[in-house]
Amino acid sequence: MSCFEIITDYGLRSIGLGERLLPKTDFTICHQLTLIGSGMLWNIYFGTVALASGFVLATLLALGKAANHFYLRKASEWFIFVFRGSPLFIQFFFAYFLFLSLKQNFTFFSPLTSAWAGALFVLFCNTAAYSGEIFYGALRAIPKNDIEAADAYGITGWARFRRIIWPTMLRLAWPAYTNEAIFLFHATTLVFFSGFPAWQQRGDALYYANYFADKTFNPFIPYPILAGYFIILTLILIGLFGVANRKLNNHLPKEQHSKIKFKIKLIR
């Protein structure tokens, strides 16, 4: 079987398209590359959707934690505390358990026991809490004169937030937020590993790497392949976040500009 055929058969296996049965014998490097790569679709799906949706909640949490309103502040603090303070491993366990009991009472919750919705929800809360804390830290680090300058120009309320505080917060938080994004994508490998069951052998990259390691009894091929995929994914992420970082810093004088650029470079 040529490698091209393998790719057409198994390239989308992780989402249930193509061959129904996984290969059983004669595992080639091509099989491993294709199936593990196919599993990466899940990692990318979890990572991207959780990051995008978590971003919104994170901003709200950061503002909530900095708010004067007592209950708002406490609620944000506790949310961040619980999700940042416990291992994701344990969060998955509890979430699955909770979703199961919810499902038994209300059919509305039934998608949550499958990974695409349930694990996504946990990852969403998780990244929102981490990013929320980063944004909160950045919020507190905004130079006072920036705000004072805005006040002097008569920019207040929503406009002050949208035009001054929010962009500055993002700019300050960006390097740490880049790291959080990388961690989030790495964390997606835990979904099928410990948290949620895999249906009909549709799993993420680690699931297939594990499958091959089990079938060939040789961990030294599939896991390095998985590692390679993740290194590529990480490099792409860093590239994208670097572009965004340049956008955020566009208005700054050249000298400061290049300094931050250099900081990003070190991750590469």
Binding site: H186, A187, F193, A213, P219, F220
Partner: peptide, 15 residues
């Protein structure tokens, strides 16, 4: 720095 940071820790631990 960049290789080890680029790989999820589980994948690393497994082999």
């Amino acid at each position: 720095i960049s290789i080890v940071r680029g790989v999820p820790d589980i994948a690393f631990f497994l082999f």
